[in-house]
Design a protein around this nucleic acid. Structure first.
Lengths: 233, 233
DNA sequence: AGGTGTGAAGGCATTCACAGCA
DNA sequence: TGCTGTGAATGCCTTCACACCT
């Protein structure tokens, strides 16, 4: 009696794994371009900056795509990860706020090597509206609802000043956007069905400052070789 | 016989807590500006987008700064968190790469409401070197070592193209920088004494795409109210 | 031999629930 | 009475170590 749609596999991929898949994907795409056909978990892990056990466990959540004694087929793994991340289809993106940051984002060419299409840029400043940025004409923010509807925007990027962020977010959500990437330094309030990810420069700097202070205090520099950066992230 | 420097308190603050302190700090600074004197864990947690138990446990790692039956003194807590994060001193920052993103970062005024000072901007492009950006003259990348040394730069921000990022990072590290904030889409290799944090647009988008696909597949929209964004981050 | 896939163990982080203090 | 501070419980993530397959 329980309504169940037929689910092929377990689909329960841990969030921590999801966050690393894009890193693996980028590394693999680099390998593919250089003509590498197969790669071991050891080697891929080293490039991606994680340890090999973690990499294998991560990949095992997608299925058994490796060959014992050999490794993983690069192209095949690129495809499987892309599919799992939902990159075999294109997602439509709209950016609100065409200041320095908004421009930087709009011009950021290889949007993760395809998978995303910028459909519109919005701004409230009439001196900016009408300008051409990254091949798009900047629209007035009041056309947001129309455009999100007609272009079927899935992801809204907020690059506005802090004070405008919640308002713009509300409008995105009201118009049907279910994923938001927030660059404004505020905590956004959204319904549970909407996903929000945030990128916050000053938070990152403050975290670094904390560790900087630690290093300055008790001077215990554990100097002993080189490690990969993502290990700590 | 074990060499021990005298440690006042336990200083062992969990990394997850450190990452949230800046959020609390920002919320508290907002309260302080609006003249609020005290705040309960419940209210502060709600503003910061976490639950109150987590907030209390986080703050308890700094000490017992609350008053039972009352709440926390806003100004006092602002000070304690600032001190813990190392924001009572100024950290010197240098930005490498003055493209769209580098400009956006340089112009990002309230660098977390003080605590950070941009000492220099570097670029390899001679058409950019000499330009004035955010009140600073862009220097050639080859002066990096000199400036980092003379200005005592603690934090290096990498806003260069991907191909240049590791090279610039190496130069920062070699010159004595021990914290790096990386905006380039590459995994940086650094010695263990150096902290790296990364900000990666395409990774964030890909994570959103994954969840977007999930929502589209099994259409089980858990509609039931509003929550705070940071809960999921 | 060589390298994947995975049960089991260990370590962190979150949440609960309440003792204890103002 | 009201709200903080915290042991205890729970759950998630990482790491280990090795069985198993090619």
């Amino acid at each position: 009696m329980t309504p169940r749609s037929p689910r092929p596999r377990d689909r329960g991929i841990p969030e921590a794994t999801v966050a690393r898949l894009p890193v693996y994907l980028r590394a693999l795409q680099g390998m593919a371009e250089r003509g590498t056909l197969t790669i071991s978990s050891e080697d891929l892990a080293s490039i991606a900056g994680v340890n090999s056990a973690k990499l294998r466990k991560d990949l095992s959540h997608l299925g058994s795509y490796g060959t014992r004694g050999v490794g993983y087929d690069v192209d095949y793994l690129v495809y499987q990860i892309s599919r799992e991340l939902g990159l075999t289809q294109d997602w439509t993106v709209a950016i609100a706020g065409v200041g320095n940051l908004g421009r930087a984002l709009a011009n950021y060419g290889g949007f993760g090597t395809r998978g995303f299409r910028i459909a519109a840029l919005f701004d409230a400043d009439l001196r900016v509206v009408g300008d051409e940025v990254a091949g798009l004409v900047v629209r007035h923010i009041d056309t947001l609802e129309d455009v999100v509807g007609s272009e079927d925007v899935a992801i809204g990027v907020i690059a506005t000043p802090a004070v405008s962020a919640q308002g713009v977010c509300d409008r995105f959500v009201e118009a049907g956007v279910t994923s938001v990437l927030n660059f404004a330094p505020v905590v956004l309030n959204v319904p549970p069905a909407v996903d929000v990810r945030k990128v916050d420069l000053s938070i990152e700097l403050q975290i670094l400052a904390f560790h900087e202070q630690r290093k300055a205090d008790g001077q215990a520099p554990p100097e002993a070789g080189w490690i990969d950066a993502t290990e700590k992230t």
